[in-house]
Every structure is written in C-alpha cells, then in structure tokens.
Design a binder for these strands. Structure first.
Length: 605
RNA sequence: GGUUCCGUAGCUCAGCUGGAUAGAGCAACAGCCUUCUAAGCUGUGGGUCCCGCGUUCGAAUCGCGGCGGAAUCACCA
C-alpha cells in the first residue's frame, strides 16, 4: 500500500475523531515537502479550518499530534503556518525500498489478455525524401508513447502509414528518368531515401527554372507578372509530365508501376536503416497505395446513410456546421480521394485487422483541424473509437532563424544529425579519456549510445505540445540536464556495483529496517517510489516528457548523494549494504525510465 | 476575421488537478580530482511568471478581456 494512501486514511480518521465530520478524500491534500523544510509529506490544512474553527497553526498542531500518536508510520511533525509537515519513520522507507527492490520492473504494468488494445500511428513518412528533424521528433515521441502505454498495461500496436503515392513521388521518378543515367543506391553509394530525395530536389530545380523562363516569355507577350507566373506554373511541361505520370500510375501502367516499386523499395531500405539506428520499430505498416481506395467505399456508405451530401459537380461533402465546423470535402468531383478519404480508408482497414479500443495518431500540430474533423467523421461512420481518438499533437522543431525550409537548404537531415551526434560523443569520450582500455567495438557502442541518448533526451524532455528550438551550431550539450548526464550516473552506479561484487559484498533481497537514514536517502527512496505515479501520469496525459524530467531529477538527487556520502568506503556494514541497495535501485529505475523513452544506458562510459 | 496552441532568468526548458521564499541546465564568475568515474559537485550574480481585471484565506497555475507569436480554416498531403 502506498504511503500516501495509508496517510490519507489516517488523516480522514483523525478529522472525524477531532471534528466529528466525514470529509471527502480529495480534501486531503498531501504533497511532497519542499526541500527547505523538515519532513517528507505535507498536509495543507486550510480546507479543514471551517470545521476546526481554529487557526491554521492550531489545526495543524492537532492533526499532527493525532497522527503522531495513532499512525506508527509518522515519526514526527512540524507546523509552519497552515502546513503540517510530516516526517515518516526510517523503517517505513527501508520497507519501501525492499518492496521496490523485489520488483524487477517497478512501476511497469504488463498487459493481460483483457487489456485494452491501443494502436499508435507515428512516423508516417512520404517516400520522396529522407527523414528530417521533424520526423525525428515524431518518431521518438511515437516510440516513447508506445512504450509508456504498454507500461500502463495496454496492448500496443505500433503502426506506420506510408505515403507512397501521389504527385511528389512522380516528381522524383520523372527527374530520375530525365537526369538520372540509371543511378542506383548501389552505383552511387547513396542511401536509397537520399538518392530519391536528391531527384526530388532536382525536379524542383528544373521546374523552377522552367517556370522562370516561361514567366519571362509570357510577360514579354504582355501579361502582368502574376498572370504570367500562374500560366507558367500551369503549363510547365515538367509538371504536366508529372501529372501524366500520376494518371498512368492510377491506371496501373506497368512501366510506371515498375519504376515506382523499384524506387520506393530503395527508399524503404533507406528508411529501415534510419529507423534501426533511431531504435524505433513498427508492428504493422500500412501503405497509402493500398488504403486510399478503401476510403471511397466508406464515404459512399456514409452518403447512402445520409451523413454526407453530394454537390451538382459530383463532389461529396460532410456538413459539420452543427459541430461548429464548416463543410469538408471527402471526394472530388472526378471521384478521386483526398487526404481525409484516405485516413478514413486506413481506419477501416485497421479496424478490420485489430480490435482497437483506442487509436492514437502522432501527427504534428499543423493538422489539429484535420483530426478534429476525422474524429467526428469516424464517429458518424460508426467507429467506436472515433469519438475519442487521440491526436497526439506535437509542435514544430524550429531553427534559431525560424522554420526549416527545404528550399533554403536549412533542413536538418535525420541521418546526418545522428551521425554527427555519435561522432561528437566519440570525440568527447576520447578527450575525457573514457575510452582507454576498451576495444574499438566497445568504444563505438558507447559513442552510439551516448550520442543518440543526447539527441533523444534533448527532444523528449520538452513538452510535446510546444514548438521547440534546435540550434545546430551550438549542437546538443553533453553536460547538465542531458541524456549523457543521466547515462553517466547510471554507468557510475554500475561501476560501484561491480566493485562491490568484486569485493564479495552481496545485497540481500530484504534489508533490515533497523537503520537510521539521512534525509537525502529517504528522499531518494521517495523519488523511486514516485516512479509508479510518473508512469501512470505519463500514460493518462500522453506525455513522455514528464518521464524525462523525472529521470533527471532522480539522477541529480543521486549525484548529490553520491558526493556527500561514501558508499564502498562506509564502515558500518549495514549502512554500506543499504546504500548499495539504494544505488542499485536508482540504477534500475533510471534504466526503466530511459527505456520508456527509447534511450539506452551504458554499463560504463 | 473564426478556431486551436503557446508566452516563466540573457538562452534552452521544468513547474500548471490552486498552496510555503517560482526551479534546473547553458552562458558568466569563484571554488573542489593521491580517496567509490570531475560527462560530476559546491557557491555567486541573474525574474513585471506578457499585461489587466476577476474568483479565492491563497493565482505562474482557474475564468474573462487585451497584447505578442505559431498553426489552421484548399477539389495539397
């Protein structure tokens, strides 16, 4: 039983005894005592003044005395204004540590057969260019959220919807045909996604040049600039060719389809490498080319049932004015589908494939409106989870000079970024002399773990909703509130445990409670115990960042403890063993917490 | 213009189901490595929590109104 629950019960009992009234549980506001005061938990007594009819100080004093006399867990108390600071007995903390110690996965709740099934969609790349920093945030958040949901006892299916069709791919294909000389990933030594991305850029370059030329021509013929540009864009032969290619694709032209498949496969091979390096994975991948037709069917079904309406030109719309929104297009006049139609189709397939209880879409906040609409539409169409689907909406990653713009070449590439982080980690490790005596493989592995840890933590510690700034010049720090700091502390704990084992000191599963603890040690146990709440809250709030910030707080606290107290040099055997057990469990919880974020921790660094 | 989100130290961010003197890191300055890993620890300086009004014993936190920034409101995805 949690200490807070136990105390709450005791306090309720006390209130009844002292003031003869039953009060609702939520009036008992127990919070962690602030550092500058003595005690572990603090009861705010203001809510009870009405029934005690006494001053805050007197009321707190009364409740404190009651607790000290009647609740064995309370060793002492002090009163400051309306705050009753309660000191919990050392033995209670040791018992708590014993509980935590026995539980290898403290704070983690495994799914059972009857657990709800949560599907999480994330990543969702286009196949015409490599992943960039924005995708990195998406992937890391999606992966972390999946871990968090799983740790809260849900069955989790991670899914990815790949946008593998459309005009953007045709542009890359066309450019490759025109300017490529048959270049392949093998022949060029480039990753497939980068190769295709380069041709997408090439298309854009040639297209722009074409438009510029045509615009000049039309202006010479007497048009104003705006008209000329619009006409040039509409009549650009390159763009017309790309559109023609898309038509052929839709008509299943074997040549176009063949090229499309080949080039997409290159891209997937590239993505797979990136995902693998990033440490993210999927249980089920959907391809838009396979789902986009499904949506039409569903929309037609809705049309028959009268949820939607058709305009004279044949286009199909949803009237959402009753929900405070506008009219939304679902099928174009020519019967082709739009983005929304595809999401409906994908939803349909997913629902066929899995008994989904909750659907979470990890998609940037520029699509808030889209998901608001999607939720309503899915609900109308009879998807049980439609109404309360979760759009896990995250903010943009911006550069100091503003948004990333592919046009201006300011896009931060995911592969480059990871490589740079690992390289920096390697250099830093070498400078600090951490790599002495390690094999190259070991050193490389540590550099990978630390470099990626720095990147992942940097991104995950920020509240997902907020836009965040990433400064490539200053790069990501390895000191302070960072992934490496947490990893470092973990590695140091492992080092101590190794040394203890070498010295033949064993840590018993159950520690003797007859030991005096310092406030720092008690505080650490309190923080360890809190991990449960943190995981639960991260799950119910869909918020991985609180785990990141928790891990930092815990490690920061442990580091201070580490410097103030000796562990292996401690002479009192019982105290030494206790501190080892405490360290071990800090290490365990840090590893679990970082694991939820998808961040590895090294045994040494 | 409508809707949604954001605004906390020079910078990057915590804190927000109302609670005590608003916290970290970076940057600056001053200390600490013959002792369990100094990617660390200790200290100093640094604040109109965007502004105003309201609710409350109590507001960075809740409500309303402003101001500033972002996103979105496409037969793009």
């Amino acid at each position: 039983m949690k200490i807070e629950d136990k105390l709450t019960a005791a306090i309720l009992q006390g209130i009844k005894q002292l003031y003869g009234q039953d009060v609702p549980e939520k009036m008992v506001q127990l919070q962690k005592t602030k550092k500058e005061f003595e005690g572990h938990l603090t009861l705010v007594v203001f809510p009870f003044l009405k029934m005690s009819k006494k001053s805050p100080e007197q009321t707190a004093q009364e409740i404190g005395e009651y607790l000290k006399n009647n609740e064995p867990a309370i060793a002492d108390f002090n009163v400051i204004k309306g705050f009753l600071n309660l000191t919990i007995a050392s033995s209670v903390w040791v018992e708590l540590l014993n509980t935590i110690n026995k539980d290898e996965k403290w704070g983690i709740k495994d799914a059972t057969d009857t657990s709800p099934l949560v599907m999480i969609e994330y990543s969702s790349p286009n196949t015409n260019k490599p992943l960039h920093l924005g995708h990195v945030r998406n992937n890391l958040l999606g992966n972390a959220l999946a871990n968090v949901m799983a740790a809260n006892g849900n069955k989790v299916v991670k899914t990815n919807i790949v946008n593998d069709r459309g005009i953007h791919i045709c542009k890359s294909m066309l450019a490759w045909l025109k300017y490529g000389n048959g270049e392949t990933p093998e022949s060029s030594g480039k990753k497939g996604d980068h190769l295709i991305g380069d041709y997408y850029v090439a298309f854009d370059k040639h297209y722009k040049a074409e438009v510029k030329e045509l615009t000049a021509k039309f202006m010479a013929e007497g048009m104003n600039e705006e008209e000329a540009k619009a006409k040039a864009e509409a009549e650009s032969p390159l763009m017309l060719e790309a559109r023609e290619m898309l038509r052929k694709w839709e008509a299943n032209d074997p040549e176009v389809r063949g090229l499309w498949k080949m080039m997409n496969d290159w891209v997937y091979a590239g993505f797979d490498e990136t995902y693998k390096m990033m440490g993210v994975s999927f249980d089920k991948i959907y391809y838009e080319s396979e789902t986009y037709l499904e949506g039409k069917e569903k929309v037609m079904e809705g049309l028959e049932k009268g949820f939607f309406f058709r305009k004279e030109d044949g286009s199909v719309w949803a009237d959402l004015t009753a929900e405070g929104l506008d009219h939304k297009l679902l099928l174009r006049g020519d019967g082709t589908s739009v983005y929304m139609t595809q999401d409906i189709g994908t939803a349909k397939l997913r629902f066929q494939d899995y008994p989904i209880n909750k659907m979470i879409y990890v998609v940037g906040n520029e699509q808030n409106y889209h998901f608001q609409v999607l939720s309503i539409l899915l609900d109308k169409l009879g998807f049980e989870w439609g109404k309360d689907l979760v759009h896990f909406s995250y903010g943009m990653v911006e550069l100091p000079e503003g948004k990333m713009k592919s046009r201006e070449g300011t896009v931060v590439d995911a592969d480059d970024l990871m490589e740079a982080m690992i390289e920096t980690a390697k250099e830093t490790s070498a400078e600090l002399g951490k790599l002495d005596g390690l094999t190259k493989e070991e050193a490389d592995d540590i550099a990978r773990i630390v470099g990626l840890g720095a990147l992942k933590y940097f991104i995950l510690k920020v509240d997902a909703r907020k836009n965040m700034t990433f400064n490539p010049k200053e790069s990501i720090d390895f000191n302070g509130n960072t992934g490496p700091f947490i990893q470092y502390t973990y590695a140091r704990i492992q080092s101590i445990l190794r040394k203890a084992a070498e010295a033949g000191i064993s840590i018993p599963e159950t520690l003797n409670t007859d030991i005096e603890l310092s406030t720092k040690e008690e505080g650490l146990i309190q923080m360890l115990a809190d991990f449960r709440n943190v995981v639960a809250q991260a799950g119910s709030d869909y918020n991985p960042s609180i785990i990141a910030n928790y891990a930092y707080d815990l490690v920061k606290e442990y580091n201070q403890f580490y410097h103030d107290f000796s562990i292996l040099r401690e002479e009192n055997e019982a105290v030494k063993v206790f501190r080892l057990a405490l360290s071990k469990n800090v290490g365990k919880v840090v590893k679990l917490a970082m694991g939820l974020l998808g961040i590895e921790v090294p045994e040494r660094m």
